[in-house]
Design a protein around this nucleic acid. Structure first.
Length: 179
DNA sequence: GTTGCGATTGGCT
DNA sequence: GCCAATCGCAACC
């Protein structure tokens, strides 16, 4: 069942936890249908330095200020598209970075978007719209979740230690092991 | 108008 | 473990 707006509008932490093990669904530009469980994700909110929106709204990050249930896609290192799911209320910037799916060749945020054919053109897609090519479906059961620090945000100082990376414990599809 | 760098990855030492 | 690739954008001047 496709996840609806009310699901994404709850507290960012609750939504993040509930998205671990949920199904990410995608119809690629060439028509291929993909459906796979989310094995790894990270939460970012405007209150901490790891978040793109820590210093406010900019042309790059404005999707994060939309109501939960939209996509936030940005280019990293000039090479890799990163897929985030906006969570929480409109006006409060928060999003979940999808880092790995239970699929071969999807163990990493950059590789994942390549396999799914997701680019910045998909930024601000409404995942709750009935005709969108990206959406989420409820998980079958609650997975055993492990938490650890987020990856690649050393510049965030003390906030880099927040245990806001959530994974399916002992999954074979993680970008890295948790500590 | 200019500059520095990043929520990464793959290849090489 | 180290490093290049590659470019939009944020933060300065």
């Amino acid at each position: 069942m496709r996840l609806l707006r009310e699901f994404f509008m709850r507290s960012p932490m609750d939504v993040a936890m509930d998205l671990v093990g949920a199904y990410l669904c995608r119809v690629t530009p060439d028509g291929t249908a993909i459906r796979a469980r989310i094995a790894e994700l990270e939460l970012y909110t405007q209150d901490e330095r790891g978040c793109h929106a820590f210093n406010g709204c900019t042309p790059r990050n404005d999707a994060m200020f939309m109501v939960g249930g939209h996509a936030y896609v940005y280019l990293c290192y000039g090479l890799h598209n990163m897929l985030n799911i906006v969570v929480g209320q409109k006006g409060y910037a928060a999003a979940v970075l999808i880092r790995a799916l239970e699929m071969p060749e999807c163990n990493g945020p950059g590789k994942l978007t390549t396999v799914l054919g997701i680019t910045r053109g998909d930024n601000k897609t409404d995942l709750c719209a009935g005709d969108s090519s990206i959406w989420l479906e409820v998980r079958d059961h609650t997975p055993d979740i492990a938490a650890g620090p987020r990856i690649g945000i050393d510049y965030a100082g003390a906030d880099a230690a927040l245990p806001w990376r959530f994974v399916i414990r002992d999954s074979d599809f993680l970008s890295r092991r948790v500590d």
